[in-house]
Design a protein around this nucleic acid. Structure first.
Lengths: 246, 246
DNA sequence: AGCTTTTTGTGCGGTTTCGTACTTATATCC
DNA sequence: GGATATAAGTACGAAACCGCACAAAAAGCT
């Protein structure tokens, strides 16, 4: 787990940095594993490490009094985990939990704070990312209030697909029901609907997207809106095939 | 509408600035009216003016394809309208609409951008405010997904009460139903429930909070969580009576 | 092989909310 | 004063979702 060698990082924020800034940042970064369900940041706890995912992704969760949680955002290789540090805070009320295992480049929050002061391009980039993420959270919250389970499930699967490597990823219905804030039985019915329509295939925790355009049609508008905002931010860089729209 | 004379502003962000920074900022600020339903920022449109409300407050709204909207945040004298500018963006996907009329100190986005560079205390303050607001939006979104209409209405009334001057404010059920993203008939029933419980009184668009502790008990936990996060941010400054917890 | 655990499908009654519509009461306008 | 517009209460069938429970199938463990 020594500092990785020098090829361009998969993380799109790091990849968007000017080469000289990336070189300055590099010694601070350490390649770490993101094991499934690992909590990277707990609610109201000081954030000491920040993460730039390379593969896999992280869910931002709000916990309710009754112990139930609901997802309000996802962060994969398109973002960073630890936005409160960029906003000069120590913590926030959200939990950051690994949902799809993978790897990330990690650095200490203290080192990031220093870097932000000395590296204007990094500061600007992360602030603008914070804005894009804020839009994602706002839209997700609105979607929670107004769209049905099947539409939201389709949207959620598309978001997970975007941040996965292939068309298949591990995910139980129990987990999905937690993310969407609904009953597992509700997910079972909605997922059955999507499967009968030939959009997805799944079996004991392994989900495969078999018809992505169809899934996009089944999802609510919120998927496309958040996705386009993210694409606009990341600009016209070369994207992985499944991240290219339509 | 010339620059106002020099007493401490009601806006808590401005009031929290070091006096010398406030003095620098002052010439840029202009006292303006916030007429009800005025759209300060439209979705995806460049933000040219930012606002520090003194009285009244602004709703942050997400619009759906079908034209319906839902509120994801409120900004009153505890905040600023125009967070995307602080995050080095031009716009976001939200609409900022005046919900309770009042006044604000306004400045151009361009002037703010300059100030942010030359005034570290302002920059830091507004970034930390952006974080608090982000928490509010995240929690509101989670609340939309998991709590019922009556609980959310109680929460919403408390938030409106916090940002109003007295115990009475203007608000039709039609408007509330839009904010909560539910039917007007649903608000009618929920509001009737709160009235029968003696918590509020209302009549043709005039709502009065008659039992605030009772209303707090009727609301979901989300009110207190967001409120405490805001109080923590604003620190131990002297608060207006109705903003003091319990 | 036999047991346990995990994952998924399904059913059912109850509750909430929706969509829509109709009614009543109060302002406002001419 | 009468017409019109606005605000609010209510009703009712339909739909979505909940809580719960049980069954079946697959995977893992001893």
């Amino acid at each position: 787990m020594a500092p990785p060698s020098r090829p361009a990082p998969r993380n799109r924020l790091l990849a968007a940095l000017p080469p000289e800034d990336l070189a300055t940042l590099w010694p601070q970064l350490k390649l770490v594993e993101l094991p499934i369900r690992r909590v990277l940041h707990a609610p109201e706890q000081p954030i000491t490490e920040i993460y730039f995912p390379e593969t896999g992704y992280v869910s931002m969760l709000v916990y309710m009094e009754d112990g139930d949680a609901i997802e309000v955002g996802q962060i994969g290789f398109d973002g960073m985990v630890g936005i409160p540090v960029v906003l000069e805070g120590d913590s926030d009320g959200l939990e950051a939990m690994v949902q799809h295992p993978g790897t990330a480049l990690r650095m200490s929050a203290a080192a990031l704070r220093e870097m932000l002061e000395s590296t204007p391009a990094l500061h600007s980039l992360l602030l603008r990312y914070a804005l894009v993420h804020h839009e994602q959270v706002a839209r997700t919250g609105a979607c929670n209030g107004r769209h049905g389970v099947a539409e939201r499930l389709a949207r959620w699967l598309l978001m997970a697909h975007d941040r996965s490597e292939g068309d298949t990823f591990s995910m139980t219905q129990e987990f999905m029901s937690m993310m969407l804030g609904v009953r597992r039985a509700g997910v079972s019915v909605a997922a059955g609907f999507l499967r009968k329509a030939g959009l997805i295939h799944y079996e004991r925790g392994e989900i495969t997207v078999t018809n992505r355009p169809g899934l996009e049609a089944a999802a609510c508008e919120c998927y496309g809106i958040v996705r386009r905002a993210s694409d606009r931010f990341h600009g016209q860089q070369i994207l992985s095939p499944q991240l290219v729209c339509q």
